[in-house]
């Protein structure tokens, strides 16, 4: 059986800046893969290439064994629906209530009826602990609450894979736990996840595999216990030392 998501030799350049230099990575169905690495190493670019917010310059991206790199138009929209994404900056729709943030794409993209969409959204918002905020506008929520709405919004499309790009990096420390708890629960329910994170405890406890990226390549990969306690590469060791003993 082919893995849910597979990335092969992915290349990306911004002008003369070579950001991804041949990244390979496999996410089996139901697995959680974490990507760690210093800022500027290309982690966000990697995720953005996977759902085609950026066009890769080489290599391939396979979803259920099918290449999605050349898709355009409606076929691309359809694939994006199958891949959920949560951003560091939340990117909630400020002109819509919390409930409507989760309802909108269901109605627009899936043509779900209003009642059914509201029921699904209410259920998802309950799962992320926001039952009381349905009619608030995002601007009145804390960062942690906004990020949980963003997760519910992505889940409303019933994605097969979820991409998380440093979703707790813009949060005050005391709000991080609530968001990570939601992600842990999602992992427990069997969601396939590709997670870029600076939360080493999350990467260690939840991931099936950890990748360390630097300079646009995967420097090291392995099961979390090994990578965190006995990294094979000098660069990994230095990065972990800097992060874990600030």
């Amino acid at each position: 059986m082919s893995p849910k998501l597979r990335i092969e030799g992915l290349q990306k350049r911004y002008g003369r800046l070579h950001v991804l230099r041949g990244v390979d990575l496999t996410v089996p169905a139901g697995a959680v893969i974490s990507v760690i690495g210093p800022s500027g190493s290309g982690k966000s670019t990697l995720l953005r290439c996977v759902n085609r917010l950026e066009e890769a310059d080489g290599g391939d991206i396979l979803l259920d064994g099918q290449s999605i790199r050349e898709l355009r138009g409606p076929a691309l929209d359809l694939v994006r629906r199958r891949i959920g994404m949560v951003f560091q900056q939340f990117n909630l729709f400020p002109h819509r209530t919390v409930l409507d943030n989760v309802v909108l794409a269901q109605q627009v993209v899936n043509r779900t009826g209003r009642d059914e969409a509201v029921a699904a959204a209410t259920d998802l918002l309950r799962q992320v602990g926001l039952t009381e905020k349905l009619d608030e506008y995002p601007g009145r929520l804390s960062g942690g609450q906004q990020q949980r709405v963003a997760i519910a919004r992505a889940l409303a499309m019933r994605p097969e894979v979820m991409l998380f790009d440093e979703v707790t990096s813009a949060l005050d420390p005391e709000l991080v736990t609530d968001v990570l708890d939601v992600m842990r629960e999602l992992a427990r329910q069997g969601m396939t996840m590709l997670v870029v994170t600076h939360e080493m405890s999350f990467a260690r406890d939840v991931s099936d595999e950890v990748l360390f990226m630097d300079g646009g390549v995967v420097v090291e990969r392995g099961d979390p216990a090994t990578v965190f306690t006995a990294p094979a590469q000098e660069r990994t060791a230095r990065f972990l030392d800097r992060i874990l003993n600030p």
């Binding site: 929209d77 359809l78 994006r80 994404m85 900056q89 993209v109 992505a154 499309m157």
Partner: peptide, 23 residues
């Protein structure tokens, strides 16, 4: 309108025109 608004909409599967119209 911040670029992230369009990107969030597209990542949910909206077409460019749907994202423009609704978001």
């Amino acid at each position: 309108v911040p670029r992230g608004q369009l990107e969030a909409s597209r990542s949910l599967g909206m077409s460019h025109s749907e994202a423009m119209r609704h978001v």
